[in-house]
Design a protein around this nucleic acid. Structure first.
Lengths: 129, 129, 129, 129
DNA sequence: GTGGTCTAGACCACG
DNA sequence: GTGGTCTAGACCACT
């Protein structure tokens, strides 16, 4: 379900994190559902178990999943997200970077907004791109 | 003119690249204008010369500036932007990442679009945030 | 009578041990009293029998309970406590860790001492927090 | 400066974290001071670099230190600590565990309080136990 | 030089 | 069976 691109500049564990978040938002992974074990995931993605483990730990830190000792890892789409100033600032910075690059690539604001809508629609409908 | 944040998650040379691009788009740096030398820039920004050098090289590779041997480095807001498939794909990926994180942070699509407009306005008016 | 928190960082068998010790100190479980069997306990706490078994074994090793073959398991608040150097050292280490974390969390020594008293009072009165 | 006990039940990276926090509180490591590099530390402590790295990353997450890309790691005894309910709860639980064990070992509340004071004094004077 | 990422393979605690 | 820890050794990005 998750695509790993070894050539991507973003590290594999980040790709797993993003992939899992997508699956959760799309509803493919429901709240409380058990995730594939670290070993399963690692053999599915052809990735080292440690890498998967790192992704799971980060996801747990972010409150997306939780680990029950000896039982496995489970989706836990917890309460309201924390909207810290720092989070907002990071978000705005990333967006600025995108807009700046888009300007240089000749991509219009309208195009960007359209992409946002289409991606959100994709998330809500639970389909793949 | 360019703000460097040593603690930012994005590398310093990237911050320089982004800063230069902003200055060009804002019109602070005009086409054909001479840029400060690597040495000047590095002492202004309190940054390692190698880092500035790397930024300049990347900016040249992207066609934003050009180096004339013995004369210096100049802005060159050359012809039509390169709209390669690969560029588009990277742009969409980055945007997806932002939208995904925004979803988890509880930031709405409308807010994102507003941020895009306000940043573009900032670029066009040539002011700082 | 014992609360198990699957999400706690301390393992379930430790929680059982702590819970049993509390019950004994509070006098809820009297000296010589028979404890529920492993099977009963495990179905009461909704916990794996192996986990309860491990807790009982550890409690027996610590001299808190004793098993009479064929008869069951009994509370045995035996003679003088073992005050080995090793026990003292472990105790001091754990306390150090708590004080260190408290320092970083901005919790005062007075607050810690107050917590100690209030917990001891809770134990002596046999009530729950 | 940091003692590692391979036989301890607490993982090595935790021991490093605790050790570093002690050094910072004692003032042995001043605010802004550079820490030994991961490689140095690992060869000093006779521990794998990855283990040191894990400790440093966790310390950064806790705001005790900060990493400047390519430059190294530095002490950053940041602003006011966050006194979340969850932190308080964990602290109280740990303390309860200590008090309970102390009760069984025949260690009095006065003794515990004395240990707290003596450890804090040790921290403030910057000496070793 | 710095830290960050990844792999391979081992051992252990927990349930 | 689960995840957590540790080692060894490699490669890479950044300054």
């Amino acid at each position: 379900m998750i695509n790993i691109n070894e050539r991507s500049s973003s590290p594999i564990y980040e790709q797993i994190i993003q992939g899992m978040k997508e699956l959760v938002l799309k509803g493919v992974l429901q709240n409380g559902e058990k995730l594939p074990s670290v070993r399963e995931m690692s053999s599915t993605l052809l990735v080292n178990p440690n890498t998967v483990s790192k992704a799971y730990q980060e996801l747990e830190r972010q409150g997306v999943i939780e680990t029950l000792r000896g039982k496995g890892t489970f989706v836990c789409t917890g309460g309201a997200p924390v909207l810290s100033d720092e989070t907002l600032h990071r978000l705005k910075s990333s967006l600025k970077q995108v807009v700046l690059d888009a300007s240089y690539a000749g991509v219009s604001a309208e195009q960007l907004k359209q992409w946002i809508d289409s991606y959100l629609k994709e998330l809500r409908s639970g389909t793949n791109a």
